[in-house]
Design a protein around this nucleic acid. Structure first.
Length: 364
DNA sequence: AAGGCGGGGAT
DNA sequence: ATCCCAGCCTT
């Protein structure tokens, strides 16, 4: 760890801070969450930005703040509406944790987002990065906010060759930032590092000739900027085979199912479906049996009307889609409802099942 | 420490 | 196809 930071004391700290912050002041993008420093809005933006690009987040952020302008509005909102506002963003536990945390802030802190590392870190979904981001951006407190951008930028500046895929490595970068961060403007300092990572110090082909801190960068001077950061690769997805059914009865209704409250796509809605554990067990009679056993739906499967492939970070779905006719009315419940292909719009659906809707409309 | 947890854009 | 993204939680 000490050896990883052997170049830290060689940095001209004041000049590095000035060059970085001056660049950010001039070149920063105009983004909706930069209009003010409302801790609630900073918080929402930071949660949305986890593992998600700026361009993807912008329209979601605008709609979300329009729908839930204050912390109290979000605390009071119906979870289904909140999930719907997040639909398509992914990692849905982010927003379920956010709403839970917002309720806690209202009850325990009188609606004021806490401004200490210890307190804010106890909130659901607020980890080391998000805690540092909110504290520095909303409250001007000099805390490190180490994300993927910062690890890439700092690994190059300081020529750090530790594997950034290892959880323990983050502490090395936090230590570096604690030493380097500007106490005059910690907000701009942290944002500048991330903005630099997004615009200049990019993963494969960094634009070093445009970089405001090139003169401070050890990797650039050693000509190794493209070799950093070191990151071991992820493993590939495992394949899950599913059969889904779009039920149509004589009244034009279909049937939708709400997923369990934990695990993958928690509390999201979907077309009834079952996993076909063995690839050869694709007979309609077998699938009908599984639908009855697992969901209590007695259905006669018709034509295979489509096939969906959907890739997650850790698995891949292959969904065979069938038309189906309901043999017995469903037992309506909190997790099983009738819907028309139009009223489905009101329910939060994962993208994989939105694809089914699209394909089905094209087919029919 | 390792794996679960979404989805889209860049290369 | 592969990587990466303003990561966190559970085990």
């Amino acid at each position: 760890m000490t050896d990883s930071l052997k170049n830290l004391k060689l940095i001209e700290k004041a000049a590095f801070q000035d060059d970085l912050i001056e660049w950010f002041a001039k070149e920063q993008r105009i983004l909706p969450w930069r209009k003010d420093q409302d801790p609630y809005k900073v918080w929402v933006s930071e949660i949305m930005l986890q593992q998600t690009r700026v361009d993807t987040v912008i329209p979601y952020f605008n709609r979300f703040i329009e729908q839930f302008p204050t912390l109290e509005d979000l605390a009071d909102a119906d979870e289904e509406k909140v999930l719907k506002a997040w639909e398509g963003l992914g990692y849905y536990s982010r927003v379920r944790n956010l709403q839970s945390a917002v309720k806690e802030v209202r009850e325990k802190y009188g609606g004021t987002v806490p401004n200490t590392k210890d307190e804010i870190s106890t909130l659901k979904g607020v980890g080391p990065y998000t805690a540092g981001a909110i504290l520095s951006i909303a409250y001007g407190i000099p805390e490190p906010a180490v994300d993927g951008n910062v690890m890439r930028v700092i690994s190059r500046i300081l020529s750090i060759w530790d594997d950034i895929a290892k959880p323990s490595t983050r502490k090395i970068f936090e230590k570096a930032i604690e030493e380097l961060i500007s106490h005059d403007n910690p907000s701009y300092f942290n944002q500048a590092l991330m903005e630099l990572g997004a615009l200049i110090c990019t993963p494969t082909t960094p634009s070093c000739l445009l970089c405001p801190v090139r003169d401070h960068c050890h990797a650039f001077h050693e000509g190794v900027e493209k070799e950093l950061p070191i990151k071991t690769k992820a493993k590939k997805q495992r394949l899950i085979r599913l059969a889904a059914v779009v039920i149509k009865d004589s009244d034009g209704n279909t049937v939708i199912h709400k997923r369990p409250s934990s695990g993958l796509l928690a509390n999201m809605w979907e077309f009834p479906n079952v996993e076909i554990s063995l690839p050869f067990l694709r007979e309609k009679s077998h699938i009908q049996g599984l639908l009855l056993e697992q969901l209590g739906i007695e259905v006669k499967l018709g034509k295979n009307v489509g096939q969906i492939e959907h890739v997650f970070s850790h698995l891949k779905w292959d969904i065979q889609v069938f038309e189906g006719e309901l043999l017995t009315p469903i037992r309506e419940a909190d997790d099983l409802k009738y819907a028309t292909l139009e009223s489905i719009d009101a329910y939060p659906f994962p993208v994989s099942h939105q694809k089914i809707i699209k394909q089905y409309y094209k087919y029919s």
